[in-house]
Nucleic acid binder design. Structure first.
Lengths: 142, 142
DNA sequence: TGATTTTGTTATCAATTGATAAGTAAAAGA
DNA sequence: TCTTTTACTTATCAATTGATAACAAAATCA
């Protein structure tokens, strides 16, 4: 196995992912949301419930800045903070119904593109794609 | 096959790709280069020679801001501006030798970080990963 | 218990980035 | 020729984002 070729494929895939999803991040200008707030909301959407520390670590935003942005998002009623009864220092962040609605709306154009692309895929293709996503998620892009 | 679950996995993977890429490019960035300057340099690298207008259009940066950043990058001796003899309003932007060296170094360190990440993968894993990348590249992110 | 670590907040300042107005020089068009 | 358009620059202000210090409360540890 030539790992150099594998790296080239990886770069190619990354570029494609960026290109295909550019529309998603671009259309996310949903009024009062800044890019970093969208990024945080995106992470919360796929990982909820999450703690502020996890957001800080995974999105490479300092804790004070994470706290500031979470406060702003919270004031827009897009997320809610639930304190952990087992450890009262911790907070679990979740999307509110309004937040879910906004992110779902935001993902819609991407989803329709995605569904269009896989609409003609066979059952075997779909299983291949799912397996491929699992592989890359766990082994490369973790 | 629930296509909705498949889409969720897709979003999750996209998010991870963004996060990992950000981490990798962050590590490879030179100290004196800001994120937007890196983005511009990356575009110049794969598309040179380019004009400021093309950079502005393709990277969605306004002309005044593009001009400002190009000036800064130029002052760091990473690019050079060559005016088009056929149309003296136009400029062709190219990487200088120093700029080429920097981007090449940056690409190399990106690769080494990728290799580190897959270094413990078995031969079967590597084949799985390659196959997964091919699948997603051809069926979803084309 | 008392010291230390973890988790998160508030406040503040600097740097980066975005947006807009105004201007220059060259090319294109009437 | 003279007007308009194109390509780019300069200047300026506002918003976003990054970085750091100081703090509080709860958990852990010794």
């Amino acid at each position: 196995m030539d790992k150099s070729i594998l790296f080239t494929k990886c770069v190619s895939l990354i570029t494609s992912v960026h290109r295909v999803t550019h529309k998603l991040t671009k259309n996310s200008k949903s009024d009062s949301i800044t890019p970093i707030q969208y990024k945080i909301l995106e992470y919360i959407t796929v990982s909820q419930p999450v703690t502020p520390s996890e957001i800080s670590d995974c999105q490479h935003i300092s804790m004070p800045n994470t706290s500031r942005e979470l406060k702003k998002i919270s004031e827009k009623n897009l997320i809610e903070k639930i304190s952990d009864p087992a450890d009262r220092r911790k907070q679990f962040i979740r999307l509110t119904e309004q937040g879910e609605a906004m992110m779902s709306e935001s993902f819609k154009s991407l989803e329709s593109l995605f569904l269009t692309r896989i609409q003609n895929a066979s059952k075997e293709d779909l299983q291949d794609i799912e397996h491929a996503m699992d592989i890359l998620q766990t082994k490369v892009f973790y």
